[in-house]
Design a protein around this nucleic acid. Sequence first.
DNA 1: ATGTGCACATAGGCTGTCCCTATGCCTCTG
DNA 2: CAGAGGCATAGGGACAGCCTATGTGCACAT
Lengths: 309, 309
Amino acid sequence: MPLPSRVTDLTSFDLLRSVAELGSIGRAAQAHGMSQPSASERLKTLEGRVGVTLLERTSRGARLTTSGQLVAGWAAQVLARAADLDAGITSLRADRQSHLRVAASLTVAEYLLPAWLIALRSVSPDTATVLSAGNSVHVAEQVLAQKADLGFVESTDVPQGLASRVVAHDELVLVVAPDHPWARRRRVTAAKAAATPLVSRESGSGTRQAWEQALTSAGITESAGPLLEMSSTTAIKAAAIGGIGPAVLSLHTVAADVAARTLVRVEVGEVDLHRALRAVWPSGRTPRGPASDLLTIATRSLTDRADRR
Amino acid sequence: MPLPSRVTDLTSFDLLRSVAELGSIGRAAQAHGMSQPSASERLKTLEGRVGVTLLERTSRGARLTTSGQLVAGWAAQVLARAADLDAGITSLRADRQSHLRVAASLTVAEYLLPAWLIALRSVSPDTATVLSAGNSVHVAEQVLAQKADLGFVESTDVPQGLASRVVAHDELVLVVAPDHPWARRRRVTAAKAAATPLVSRESGSGTRQAWEQALTSAGITESAGPLLEMSSTTAIKAAAIGGIGPAVLSLHTVAADVAARTLVRVEVGEVDLHRALRAVWPSGRTPRGPASDLLTIATRSLTDRADRR
DNA sequence: ATGTGCACATAGGCTGTCCCTATGCCTCTG
DNA sequence: CAGAGGCATAGGGACAGCCTATGTGCACAT
């Protein structure tokens, strides 16, 4: 199901946000490098799409109506994530030969790095970051070969020659569609989970390895083969949501779906599915400059969580 | 600063997500109701904008590259929030005369309701919801006059004639720009905070009333007038980020900025800034049907938070 | 009162984007 | 070796969006 076209054009919502900040359509237009009539028309068609009046236009400027405030608030969430996306994309482009090279596992790159990059930008605006994403082995290689200044991995065991610091935590979770039998019980035994074919990544992926390792550690040697192998997290989620079968994914990956009830988390008994996410760097070469800044930012996000109620 | 144009068109990212799910450009095109060549071209221009190859095209379909998985993951966050936005917008339109009428304070409507509405849709897909947002008095009026089936308020005291249940918590927080003197100390006394002019909403807004009441409860009678009054939360945040001065806002409002370090939270000594968010309905008329479902969903989100580590 | 300034709306014309159909090319498979 | 499935390219047409120029309404000052 594609996204409704009502919300696909972020420019108009961004413009609305600017009007809220600047108090006038004309100034918002200026901030966006467009003419005042264009902005005026855009906002009018936006109101048409939304179906309610968003702006109270006066000869002294424009203010948001109550509905306008709501829409602007919801839109702000979208725009914030879009800013993350943009920061991520920037880090993928290797066009400027930057001076902070980061290697990270997919989980870290997907869920934590964009916010760190934005924070880093406010500390040292001129640092362009280049990201190389891959599995733990890839990250270790990049860091050891000094092709990356800093790495982030989700292994429990840190490769030889690397120093590390825990920067965040992750957890594998077993999820099922809401109408799956397990959804009501919210808990299965490790043996039962192991004996059930799952929707999973291809063998060799970090998530799948971690799951199998966790089962082995719990003393479970036999486990069923996968029900279906898919190449991307998104595809696995879609399959699980569609009711194909249970899936094991990173908590970060499914948090939104669990909150929205499109997936239900099922506890797995007696298995430690927790894993630390670590920053890594070559032993003895303490990160300096931007790498050090990024390390600080990453570490700080850990203490912050504890700050909060 | 407007959003970069690279990320303003969500359609292309949505299409990318579909390719990840369905395994082929053609099927993704079909799912979006467009022709295969259009999808192919869109994805190509998307790759051009992003600057890296996102898809591995084979004669058997298309798969995401590692970069493609990252971009798709980041985009999924944006799309999820866009879905919230869409759900919110739908609730603002009164075009279908729906049968679930909800009145909510701005804080609840902005930060909690969209997810609830999406969850509700999966429970009873045919329920269209109409939202009326306003302050606590407005909500109480709507509910008492039976113009709303369910209300959500952030007052500490529930109006006469209404039954209530706590569904979430909120907290007022004092925030300053990172270069503000208070940012280093991370804590000020209540008296000092009260004596400092703040950027705030116009008098009469729920947030401002709550702040003044909290100070009064802490035995502080004198407080400085506002430094600057602005009509929208967004504008206040922009002013605070710009370093105009400290601001008091809902935790939900600033959580993202605090995480991204564009704002710094400052603890205020000896003042209780916590407030419960409550669902309200007419005493003796227990919600039934969709209203009851929504109440369940809202309550459930409270217990969930405790579930998480 | 009346003029002036500011802000938004409307009009007209143009450019560019985006989409569709038709077709070509490649690869895997039977 | 032929057919099917999948993606890319080509060409043409529709429409959305932007710009400049101008109109309209309100507030405030003289």
